[in-house]
Design a protein around this nucleic acid. Sequence first.
DNA 1: GTTCATTTGCAACAGAGTTGCACACCATTT
DNA 2: AAATGGTGTGCAACTCTGTTGCAAATGAAC
Lengths: 136, 136
Amino acid sequence: MDQLRETLKGHHLRTTTCREDVLSTFINKKNALSHGDLEGVLGENYDRVTIYRTLKTFLEKGIIHKVLDDEGLRYALCSQNCSEEKHHHDHIHFKCNECGETNCLENLHIPAVQLPKGYQPENFNLLIQGICPNCK
Amino acid sequence: MDQLRETLKGHHLRTTTCREDVLSTFINKKNALSHGDLEGVLGENYDRVTIYRTLKTFLEKGIIHKVLDDEGLRYALCSQNCSEEKHHHDHIHFKCNECGETNCLENLHIPAVQLPKGYQPENFNLLIQGICPNCK
DNA sequence: GTTCATTTGCAACAGAGTTGCACACCATTT
DNA sequence: AAATGGTGTGCAACTCTGTTGCAAATGAAC
C-alpha cells in the first residue's frame, strides 16, 4: 500500500484513492488494460471521467504507456522508471488470439531493421499475435 | 478503371461505384487512410455508413488491412493477394511524426525475434515512428 | 484547523462506429 | 429488353468511447 504512495509521489502526483486503486489494478492484473476493463473493476467506486483522467495523468507522468492492437487501445505499466521527460518505449507486446490478453515482453529487444534511405526512426513498437503459454 | 472491376471481381464482390471509388482512393493516395480521410474525399457522394460498410467488406475479403498507430485506426491495401481465407500480415508501418502519414514498408521483413518458451507467434506487426524522407 | 491548489463527480457534449429497415441497384435469367 | 432475387445503399436512430466546463470535495502544507 505504501508502495503505491511511493510510486505516485515519485512521479509527482498526489495520492488519491482513485489513483491508488487504478495503479494497484495495473499491478495485480499483469496484462494490458483498457479503460473499459478498469471501469469494469472500479466503475462502482469512481466516475468514468475520473478514470479517463487518471489514465491521462498516468500517461503524461510516465507511469503507463499505450498498447495498441487491432481491437483498440490499452495501457500497461512502464517497466523502466519513465518520467514526464523521458519515456522508454521500444516495446514488444504479445497478444493472445485465444484469451485476448496482451502482455509486455519486457526482456526482449526489437532487432534492428534496415530502413530505406531517408527514414529517421524514433521509436519502435512490435505487436506479435499468436497463442500464449497459458492457452497452448 | 477495368483494373478496379477486376480486383473487386477477384475478391467476389459486386462492382458498385462506391466500392470503385474507395478502392481507387486507396490506390491513388499511397498511404494508409482512416474512415475520416475517405469521408473527406467521398463524403459528398456516399453516406458515412456506406463507407464504413465498404471498409468492413474490404477487410473481410482481404483487399485492405488495419493499420494502428497511437492516433487511431487506419487502413491500407494488402500488397499480396490476400483472400477471405488467408491474410498475409507481417507488416512494417512507418508513421511520420511530422506530416502524420503512415505508410507500409513493403519490401522489408521483420527480423526474427526469440520469444520466451511457450509463445506461439502467428503474425507480426511493427510500427516505427519517426521522420519520413519527405519531412526531413 | 485553515487555506489553496488539485482532483472529482456530474451533466452535457462530440465523434466514431453500429443497426434496422425501406428503397435502389447489380447481375442473372428468361 | 424486362422481370427477378439477392445484395448494397441511404436515412434515422442509437450505442460506445472519449472530452470539456463547472461546482463541490479532497489532499498537502502551513
